[in-house]
Design a protein around this nucleic acid. Structure first.
Length: 577
RNA sequence: GCACCCAUAGCUCAGCUGGAUAGAGCGCUGCCCUCCGAAGGCAGAGGCCGCAGGUUCGAAUCCUGCUGGGUGCACCA
């Protein structure tokens, strides 16, 4: 149920009535007619821009259209008044029963209130994290992980058929480095002194892997050349690292539907098939690229390479898919991977990348556009940096100094819920401050706490109601909820389905966080007014019936907050301690 | 040199794909809360939406050009 859609439908009906009455030309496009909450509540409950949008095509004055439209609208029992304002806005006041119906709808539909069918079951693939399998996930990955996961839930809630996917970069040189590093730990496990040179991973997390390798193969790899053990150690180490990654993700409540191995693209003809697909469209050629203007790489020299004509699909320059020595570039498996996603029948692809990968956006979009003949849109969301703070002081990370903060460090210190919520309090392309202390602070300026507190307060109300012996299964008389502060809550609740649709359309889960904060804020305001106005308190000692209806309102708030937290992947807290 | 992202209150940021007098939190000022609705409440001040043009009934939002910050720029993944 979306009240805004309902009222928009009423506006369209009125406009059509005007057409039959000859008050408006017959051939008009109503697509741009919108019904929105007015910025200032004093203007009314809802506003439409219909008169302004239609003035030009109808060759009429906005006010004339608005005046006539108002007459038609008020004949609808749901619309109490319609007044022309400003340049031609039509401000509507809705019957109070409509807002009370919102409560009824929330109670009836529960968590499904706000669900949308905009996705129409279309298949969406959300690829996120996709960190190299060379170590534990760190804070940088955490934000992308939370974002991608929340976005996936959001799209699911909006009616899409969502797949959560992780691309394992296990085909490149970095897993060889991993294998060599593990080999050193393996030697160490055998009691040898080893030196970690540049180009190896010195992290302690590989020590147990070295021991496990020893337990598995014994002394078999000692005093052997790399060609003897590299492939096997690589395989072993990558698996161990993915176990680590899976466990890290699980600590945040993230479970992928699919892990896709880059390595599986090599030697299976899949890369060749993808490039062939591009070739058949005339988008592959042998050529030499211009050197980049401005600062030229020192070792630049003209080389003939196999190039993808990505400029045909919006890129700035064509991109090499095969090096001059005949090996694939890193871009080639990426193309093959996305070709695979397209082939799996997705209607929409989303990639979540770190902001430092911004340079790949155009070429990836070009590849998907070419491979799907423009059928499948690819949206790439770039995730900005996380700046860590402790006690308000910037917390510098350094791999060498051993002060680099892992995903696990964060989750262990502040918990998965606070981590997730806080990571979603900024839009993805804005940098995020993460202060270990502030995230746990119990105050109004901490949105995590403020939203959780609202839910906990509802629980507290319910507890007290039970203690008072009220029958919580009784049918509430919602017509008693007519105070302006109570209706304000209904209005905020009515925005929820609209907000879900907006957030899903723009792929911006942070909008859910901000909405929840607003809703919590509205609820706390009502609760606080109970201090001065006893008749606004949820529990009315002298009237069980009144209490029951007010408790229904509190439950509605709880339902929507829990639905929202569910999208964000945050567990609601029962009570604040 | 080129591309992408960002620029909104003193600070940290929202801002509904073009709508009305641009919002929130912190900080600041003033009042209230000192027993049962606790981890605060109410009100106020604070703005050239980076700058300059353009598009139209209407621009923080779209276009162009600047300024300033971030990221990335054949063969590395």
């Amino acid at each position: 149920m979306n009240l805004f859609d309902d009222i928009r439908a009423a506006v369209l009906t009125a406009l059509e009535a005007m057409q039959t009455a000859g008050e408006l030309p017959a051939d008009l496009d109503f697509a741009n007619v919108a019904v929105e909450p007015p910025r200032d509540a004093a203007h009314g409950d809802m506003a439409t821009n219909a008169a302004m949008v239609l003035a030009k095509p109808a060759k009429m004055k906005p006010r004339d259209i608005a005046d006539a439209l108002a007459v038609h609208l008020v004949s609808d029992a749901r619309i109490e008044s319609a007044e022309v304002a400003g340049p031609g806005f039509l401000n509507m006041r809705l019957a109070v029963t409509l807002w009370q119906d919102v409560f009824a709808a929330v109670l009836e539909q529960g968590a499904a209130f706000g669900r949308s069918d905009m996705g129409q079951g279309k298949k969406v693939n959300v690829e996120y994290v996709s960190a190299n399998p060379t170590g534990p996930l760190h804070v940088g990955h955490t934000r992308g992980a939370v974002f991608g996961d929340a976005l996936a839930s959001l799209l699911d809630y909006a009616g899409y058929d969502v797949t959560r996917e992780y691309y394992i970069n296990d085909g490149g040189a970095q897993v060889d480095v991993l294998a060599r590093s593990v080999y050193l730990r393996y030697l160490e496990a055998h009691g040898q002194e080893v030196a970690f040179e540049d180009g190896t991973y010195p992290g302690d997390y590989l020590i147990p892997v070295g021991v496990e390798l020893k337990n598995k193969v014994g002394a078999a790899f000692l005093d052997k050349g790399e060609q003897f053990w590299l492939a096997e150690v690589r395989e072993f180490a990558t698996e161990k690292m993915m176990d680590l990654v899976r466990a890290d993700l699980a600590s945040l409540g993230i479970k992928m539907d699919k892990f896709y191995s880059e390595k599986s693209l090599y030697g299976t003809g899949r890369i060749e098939a993808a490039i062939e697909a591009l070739k058949s469209k005339g988008l592959i050629y042998e050529g030499v690229l211009e050197p980049p203007k401005g600062k030229k790489p020192e070792d630049w020299e003209p080389r003939e390479q196999t190039l993808f004509r990505s400029t045909e699909h919006g890129d700035d320059v064509d991109r090499p898919v095969m090096k001059s020595d005949g090996a694939w570039t890193y871009f080639a498996p990426d193309i093959a991977y996305h070709y695979d996603k397209v082939s799996r029948g997705y209607d929409m692809l989303i990639d979540v990348f770190g902001a430092d990968h911004g340079g790949y956006v155009k070429r990836m979009k070009a590849a998907v556009s070419a491979l799907s003949d423009g059928r499948v849109p690819l949206d790439i969301k770039l995730i900005q940096l996380v700046k860590l703070f402790k006690n308000g002081e910037p917390f510098k990370m350094s791999k060498r100094a051993g002060t680099f903060v892992t995903l696990r460090d964060v989750v262990d210190q502040v918990g998965p819920g606070a981590t997730r919520f806080h990571m979603l309090t900024r839009k993805n392309d804005a940098p995020l401050d993460f202060d270990f202390d502030k995230v746990l602070e119990q105050s109004k300026d901490n949105p995590v706490f403020y939203v959780q507190y609202a839910n906990a307060r509802v629980n507290s109300v319910l507890r007290k109601a039970r203690d008072a012996g009220f029958d919580l299964n009784a049918t509430p008389d919602l017509s008693q909820l007519d105070h302006e502060a109570e209706i304000a809550v209904a209005k905020k609740l009515a925005e929820w389905p609209r907000m879900v649709a907006l957030a899903a359309r723009t792929n911006e889960p942070h909008r859910i966080s901000f909405y929840l904060y607003d809703l919590a804020s509205e609820f706390h305001a009502l609760y606080n007014r109970g201090n001065d106005l006893p008749e606004l308190r949820f529990l009315q000692d002298d009237s069980e019936a009144t209490s029951i209806s007010k408790i229904a309102l509190a439950r509605c708030v709880q339902v929507v907050i829990c639905a929202g937290l569910g999208i964000l992947g945050v567990e609601p807290v029962e009570e604040m301690r």
